[in-house]
């Protein structure tokens, strides 16, 4: 007890936590205002707004899963090399050799779970009519976040570089070949012909832009790796911040007027 007391009275502790333990009403209010991680929340909230039967906690779970994916993803990046030579072998080693190979399971199942919880969160927001004014724009941001979640999962699907991976990505990205005007098998691609030269070929169409090649190969692996580990997570983080900020600014969690 005495040691705990000494620590809590030390200069270091007090410089980090500006207030005593939140045991009384005053400090429970203060903690919400002075702690960086807690300041996302309001100080007080209607009891209805935190009822699990109302919120399902799915938005929170989705965000938590995003954090799980980030942590396990960074750790996996230490093991995994995105090249044709190593990608498959590194995943194989994660399964058979590496002692913390379960990181891959956590990452993969977490990703599936995140797709599901995103849908459920959206479903709840719809069913409670919470997309209605004044929260219209936050719903729009949510739809973009849904899209980014799916893209994160899709780009990650390729990285194990096994049969499941490349054929799923091949089937998925073949659709881009049929993009109207911009895909070389899409309707209207003939319109982009200048002086008898086709502008849209299999080496310049939407699918090529997605894959970085005419088929799923080494360039695609590199491209999807960078998208999966850097580009999309950054965009997602930014939009998440705006999403949370707007929940507060649009009047907190929804409820009957």
């Amino acid at each position: 007890m005495a040691i705990g007391e000494t620590i809590r009275n030390s200069q270091i502790w007090k410089s980090i936590f500006r207030h005593p333990m939140p045991l009384d009403r005053r400090n429970r209010i203060v903690v919400m205002l002075t702690n960086f991680f807690l300041h996302l929340h309001p100080v007080s909230i209607k009891k209805q707004g935190i009822a699990l039967s109302f919120t399902w906690c799915m938005g929170g779970v989705t965000f938590f899963l995003f954090l799980v994916e980030t942590v396990t993803g960074v750790l996996l990046m230490f093991y995994y090399r995105p090249t044709l030579e190593w990608a498959y072998n590194d995943i194989l080693a994660l399964r058979d050799v590496t002692s913390l190979g379960i990181l891959r399971e956590l990452h993969r199942w977490g990703a599936h779970a995140m797709v599901i919880t995103t849908w459920l969160h959206m479903y709840r927001v719809f069913l409670t009519g919470s997309y209605k004014p004044p929260r219209e724009f936050n719903w729009v941001i949510g739809v973009i976040l849904l899209l980014l979640t799916l893209l994160l999962s899709f780009t990650g699907y390729l990285l194990p570089w096994d049969q499941l991976a490349i054929w799923a990505i091949t089937v998925g990205s073949n659709m881009a070949r049929a993009t109207p005007i911009l895909g070389y098998e899409g309707p209207g691609q003939q319109l982009l012909t200048i002086g008898g030269i086709d502008m849209i070929t299999d080496g310049s169409d939407a699918r090529f832009g997605l894959l970085g090649a005419r088929f799923v190969g080494e360039e695609t692996l590199n491209r999807f790796y960078v998208l999966h580990c850097i580009a999309i997570p950054l965009a997602t983080s930014l939009l998440l911040a705006i999403h949370f900020w707007r929940v507060r600014k649009d009047g907190g969690i929804s409820g009957p007027l």
């Binding site: 209010i29 007080s44 009891k47």
Partner: peptide, 8 residues
Amino acid sequence: NDEKVLVW
């Protein structure tokens, strides 16, 4: 359930 409670 209109009553307000503290978040912490």
